[in-house]
Design a protein around this nucleic acid. Structure first.
Lengths: 225, 225
DNA sequence: CACCAATCTTTACATCGTTAAGTTCGGGGA
DNA sequence: TCCCCGAACTTAACGATGTAAAGATTGGTG
């Protein structure tokens, strides 16, 4: 009778065992992150909200980093969903591409603390190896982006190139726009006016122009000392 | 005889007054940041290195955020220098553009903790207003990027468009590449092999292709609810 | 020469992440 | 059915952190 869904829904505090603490921590952590921001996110505060002692997390997560990694993992999942929603079977494919790009940026604008966390791994070698689920979720979101790109390639709407390489260009571009906007380097993000949509669309159309033109041979610049 | 450069060079501890604590904190802070990373950067450790009590900083900085903002400000200055170094009077202009882009990404690869700090402002409205020097330094670095772009425009090597708009595309692109690489989302950054140079060059050439093609009219997608 | 304001120190406080040891519970084996 | 073992949780404590308050020390100005 463990992990009973009924008990999980009712969520009545029955003294000791919570029943589904791990999920509760992640879900409440998402809320707390959006409210308090990345730097003011504390385990004790989170535990207080869930109604549990601060040390209880350590039965489910190795440390704070593991909790944040789990939160970032569902963040990437939600990002992937936000991108997939824009996929249609009808209509202008190029327009769909622009809409997906705008959906990506909007995800960051609407949930800046979560987005920053997702791209704020402190020491990359540790995170890459320690949290394979994070890596998988991130690659899945990336795959949605490249998937649409491959679709455009098959229809001949953009040049035929390596989907990984050109997909990286797309990802870097939308991620760069998002990051600049939510860190305040682009002023148009201060209010939710349609201005950022214009900026993003214009920038993505520029990138699309490059994806239309044929690829040129790549020469490596001399390695720096 | 205050702020005497000789005393500043000799740096002998004369009991109480340090002489040039503010600069010493920023300079040593840059080193500490690269060694320890962003999350392990502590004021007490920094004060220990400079040979001063932990509370001494508060005579020069309002809080930790102000210190980090000062560090990020010189970081943007050094980034601008790294970009300007690539400017030449002779040679292929497009090639120079690619070299500057690679210099940008290399800056982030070589000093990831500093670069992350520069683009990690926690709450944008506060930072934008509180630290005008930071804003100015960031815009100066951005201006170097757009300056080269304007040069390309005057020579007719790219389309004639709004330098601010197209400059943002360039900045977003190189920043996105840098960010993805140093957060471990692009695997090629694990070792300092010439691979990232190839990736970056290829991606920037794609963007250049878009900057060559004529701009299309911008239509704003319907605002989401 | 005396004083003032800036600079720096000591001390203290609340909070944080994390560990250690003890408590409570659920469920599988007898 | 009961018992008991391991997982899930608690309380208590530790060291470290950012920061405020109060006092000591200085260099330059009157």
């Amino acid at each position: 009778m463990k992990n009973c869904p009924v008990r999980r829904l009712i969520q009545l505090k029955q003294g000791y065992h919570h029943g589904d603490l791990r999920n509760a921590l992640v879900i409440e952590g998402l809320k707390l992150l959006e409210q308090e921001g990345h730097s003011d996110f504390s385990l004790r505060d989170l535990a207080r909200r869930v109604g549990v002692s601060a040390a209880a997390l350590y039965a489910h997560f190795a440390d704070k980093g593991a909790l944040l990694a789990a939160i970032a993992t569902v963040g990437f999942g939600q990002l992937r969903e936000a991108l997939e929603v824009t996929i249609r079977d009808e209509g202008d494919l190029m327009e769909q591409f622009l809409h997906m790009g705008w959906a990506y940026v909007r995800f960051g604008i609407e949930r800046p603390a979560l987005y920053k966390l997702m791209f704020a791994s402190e020491d990359l070698p540790a995170k890459c190896d320690e949290y394979p689920e994070l890596e998988a979720a991130a690659e899945a979101a990336f795959g949605t982006l490249t998937g649409v790109l491959e679709h455009l390639q098959r229809r001949g709407l953009v040049r035929a190139g390596d989907p990984e390489t050109d997909g990286l260009s797309v990802w870097a571009h939308v991620h760069g726009l998002t990051s600049l906007i939510i860190t305040g380097r682009v002023e148009c993000a201060c209010d939710p006016a349609p201005q950022p949509a214009e900026v993003v669309r214009s920038s993505l159309e520029t990138l699309l122009g490059g994806l239309r033109s044929p690829a040129r041979p790549v020469r490596v610049p001399a390695a720096a000392p």
